[in-house]
Design a protein around this nucleic acid. Sequence first.
DNA 1: TCCAATGTTGCGATATATGAAACTATAATT
DNA 2: AATTATAGTTTCATATATCGCAACATTGGA
Lengths: 258, 258
Amino acid sequence: MDAKNNENHLLSSVRNALLILQSFTMDEPEKKVSDLAASLGLNKSTVSRTMSTLASEGFVSKDPETKKYRLGFSILALSGIINSNTDVYQESQPILKKLVEDIGETAHISVLDNLDVIYIQKLECNHPVRFLTHVGKRNPAYCTSSGKVLIAHADERKIQQMLESELNPFTKYTITNPKELHAHLKKVKEEGFAFSMEEFLEGVNSIAAPIYDYTGKVIASLSVVGPKQRIEPNKIRPIAKKVINASMEISDRLGYWR
Amino acid sequence: MDAKNNENHLLSSVRNALLILQSFTMDEPEKKVSDLAASLGLNKSTVSRTMSTLASEGFVSKDPETKKYRLGFSILALSGIINSNTDVYQESQPILKKLVEDIGETAHISVLDNLDVIYIQKLECNHPVRFLTHVGKRNPAYCTSSGKVLIAHADERKIQQMLESELNPFTKYTITNPKELHAHLKKVKEEGFAFSMEEFLEGVNSIAAPIYDYTGKVIASLSVVGPKQRIEPNKIRPIAKKVINASMEISDRLGYWR
DNA sequence: TCCAATGTTGCGATATATGAAACTATAATT
DNA sequence: AATTATAGTTTCATATATCGCAACATTGGA
């Protein structure tokens, strides 16, 4: 195996603990020892002891009634540290707020991790529709507006890597042809914004623009997301304009000029 | 020792990993292997392997240039799951937004963990003053407005427990006399809000009100924080009124009536 | 009251995490 | 440019901490 030397000297008990943590999801935020043991193929006692250790440091907390575990506050504390030290996060809060008020749709700040886009910040609009993203969510870059912006401004090596990756059709609108996608990304870079019209989720459209740091590198993207009934094709341009303005304002604050 | 049986069967390598994660702070968001080894009294190689394992699951990420580690996106993802499954979090976003606009100060939602208050949500105002809290921050309950609200509505056993705990004077305004604090809490419960005038941090005032769930239990608190120049004593009542209105609106959304 | 299901604990076997030292890789100094 | 110095990774032998099993405890249901 190729990855052998990488995985060789990993600590298995630590790895177990991390896999346990990552098995918590939006849909299953509570877990029992036996469930975890079964789903991860670990022994009950191993899981029990791992959970005790995680609980002792506040990474999970146990409901004494139901004996179920949920993620603990230590994780919130760590996420707070990540945010406090992410320049984009600091500078974007008020601008995001203005944008959400103006457009009336939920906005995200995202960064690229490999070929995925990760939402590091989210500000919800007032519409009562519950949304499907959350901070930390990982989505494929090639079919989301934020992802396309980030990839489009990445180096050619990264673009190639993505074009050669599996381009699964999430909806009938997903661009799965590498050539077409390549041309599409070129246009995204030229025009300074990207949109995704139901390319990832049926009925969901989004528009995104790049955020630059002081070196002129694109380090994040700003996007607005909403149902296709509200983000209609003929509104792309005017909304894009506002998104670009906001993203540029954030870039300004990060020391970008020109 | 009493805690012996508890700590007996904890997994030490997992514990090391968690201690490493928790050693990241706002002031030191980046760490080197040797620093970690020194500060935690662990062997270099132990830390190196632990970090590799943490990195392999995205809990930390290594800057290939500087070889320094920082907290990774997996933690953000987990925090997103916590938030998505916290009703208060879901329902409070827009209301928090309105409140911050109205008052012009930073607002927090907090919950109680033992005798500490933990900020689970924060919305910053536009004032350029950088603030000293972050999501996940843990502060003593007895000298913060949010903490006093939460303790005041807890059961008598908890209140006693707090009164018997160490009441350190963070400033000259901190209430350290148990009797006085008890009376103070009683008033907080009667009036339906709490304030802290420099009781925790010099020059920083705050005002908080309780958030109720559908069972009528106080599960969180809403607070606004700002410098004493802006949150002056004569403004306590009018601000408190607005905070209470907002917290009640959140409670409404959580199904609280009456 | 008994049974079933689940979580915790004791214990021995052994896989595995550890520390020391060798080995790289990178940065600093001359 | 050559040489130290510094820091991170990896090797290896060893001891130890982790694991699985089984016994035990606890809870809830029949």
